[in-house]
């Protein structure tokens, strides 16, 4: 097995996705097959190779530090499912 049900449960929690028992079962089988397929990469000698995270030959990209107008807060917040004034509203983050 490339991945177990416990690992899928653990990773889903890291990703903040709630899974039903049925989904857990279903995804574990599918992910196991996908990872078995990915294991073909193990056959290659790659230690000496630099990783390519990005194909462009650029490192840092700077722009001029000019003050420009930003979107008004009311515009930025207008899609929020819950808000108070110009603030996003959510459940308590810190226990009282």
């Amino acid at each position: 097995m490339a991945i177990t049900k416990d690992t899928v449960r653990y990773v889903a929690n890291l990703a903040r996705v709630e899974l039903s028992e049925k989904e857990l079962e279903h995804f574990t089988g599918q992910l196991d097959r996908i990872l078995e397929y990915v294991h073909k990469l193990k056959g290659l000698e790659v230690k000496e190779l630099a990783p390519t995270s990005h194909v462009l030959d650029i490192k840092n990209v700077y722009r001029d530090d000019i003050i420009k107008e930003s979107l008004p807060a009311s515009e930025v917040i207008k899609n929020s499912p819950d808000r108070e004034g110009d603030l996003f509203k959510v459940k308590n983050i810190i226990e009282a």
Binding site: V38, L41, V46, L49, A50, P51, T52
Partner: peptide, 8 residues
């Protein structure tokens, strides 16, 4: 490992 194979 995938990023290294991407180089190849």
């Amino acid at each position: 490992r995938a990023l290294r194979v991407r180089t190849l």
